[in-house]
């Protein structure tokens, strides 16, 4: 589950939203990217009907700039709010400060 889909996260003014931009074809998407130059995330995906989608990160007031003929914009979540939630999961202090505090990997150590 992606954190940005959690609609319970608190929103603030000027937050960056994650939206899904779907263009009717690749040329339409390219034109949009060239004109608006948005912050994009992930890989463009080709849908069965020939449309192409990509994640875009914009504040709410910039969404109208994405909307045009042949393009649909779907709100996925609040990326800033997801980031703030993740900030609460950042370590405090220095967990490796002690001489015997050595980082351990997550893989299982197999056999011997």
């Amino acid at each position: 589950m992606s954190a940005v889909t959690n609609q319970s996260l608190e929103s603030l003014p000027h937050d960056i939203l994650r939206v899904r931009v779907t263009a009717r074809n690749a040329d339409t998407l390219r034109a949009l990217l060239r004109d608006v130059h948005p912050d994009v995330g992930g890989r463009p995906t080709l849908d069965a009907d020939g449309s192409v989608s990509i994640d875009v990160y914009v504040p709410d007031d910039r969404i109208p700039a994405l909307e045009r003929e042949g393009v649909t914009v779907t709100r996925v979540g609040n990326a800033s709010a997801a980031g703030r939630a993740a900030q609460a999961e950042v370590g405090q202090g220095d967990r490796f400060a002690a001489a015997n505090a050595i980082p351990r990997g997550l893989a299982a150590k197999l056999g011997g």
């Binding site: 980082p103 990997g105 893989a107 299982a108 150590k109 197999l110 056999g111 011997g112």
Partner: peptide, 17 residues
């Protein structure tokens, strides 16, 4: 984590899962 796993496995003569 990549470094930590490889170093621990090498020194302990184990594989990695």
């Amino acid at each position: 984590h990549f470094a930590a796993d490889l170093l621990e496995a090498y020194q302990g003569n184990t594989g990695l899962g």
